[in-house]
């Protein structure tokens, strides 16, 4: 076996069998490749990386299946169904399918595919799930009102110097720091 091959297996071993530590790629390197990916997405498809748009498309498709009449008459989603094309056959939905595949791939390589609840140790599971659903609802409303989420609105917006992206940045992270003080007990154990 060549020396190079040996080196590679050793590298894999480090990730695969070292169960005690979570190993992540260098954040700056990850960010750099993420930046290149934004450029690729804009170059080929003219789309920014996004998530909430795909969520909305799925929600629209569900409503179209369940109550087609209501969906077509709704002034928010009706226009999206006007063309007659399936709302699921969009770039964003396929991108999200890809995201699922990519995440599983990475987690498999780095040995992170476990069923578990992620939370701060002091928080009970029940509370964590309750907070997760509340947070989700807020995101659902916020993304539709603000026209996008952290990736589609802020990241892709900042990439093209759009004012909207920077307002989103101030909104999400600026207010995030304020809310962080209010909800500190969710993440940090306080001695009471």
């Amino acid at each position: 076996m060549s020396k190079k091959r040996k080196k590679r297996t050793k590298w894999l071993k480090n990730f695969k069998f070292n169960k005690r530590s979570n190993r992540y790629i260098n954040p700056y390197v990850g960010g750099f490749f993420l930046g290149l990916l934004i450029i690729v997405a804009l170059y080929f498809s003219g789309e920014g990386l996004g998530s909430s748009g795909g969520y909305r498309d799925v929600a629209v498709a569900v409503l179209d299946k369940v109550t087609p009449e209501y969906a077509h008459n709704n002034s928010y989603i009706g226009p999206r169904l006007a063309s007659g094309e399936s709302p699921l056959k969009t770039w964003l939905v396929f991108e999200l399918i890809g995201v699922i595949m990519g995440a599983i791939l990475s987690a498999a390589i780095f040995n992170r595919l476990h069923l578990r609840i992620g939370k701060a140790p002091h928080l009970t599971d029940k509370k964590r799930l309750l907070f997760a659903v509340i947070g989700g609802i807020l995101w659902g409303i916020g993304t539709q009102l603000g026209r996008g989420c952290t990736s589609g609105l802020v990241l892709s917006g900042m990439a093209v110097n759009s004012l909207s992206g920077y307002i989103g940045l101030i909104g999400i992270f600026g207010f995030g720091f304020i809310f962080a003080i209010i909800f500190k007990s969710i993440w940090i154990k306080t001695n009471k």
Partner: peptide, 22 residues
């Protein structure tokens, strides 16, 4: 206006929920 308001809502959602959609 909606982006700032929506952003604030998302900021709260981020802290409470611990994720963003992606």
């Amino acid at each position: 206006i909606p982006t700032l308001v929506g952003g604030a809502i998302m900021g709260a959602g981020f802290i409470i929920g611990g994720f963003c959609p992606g």
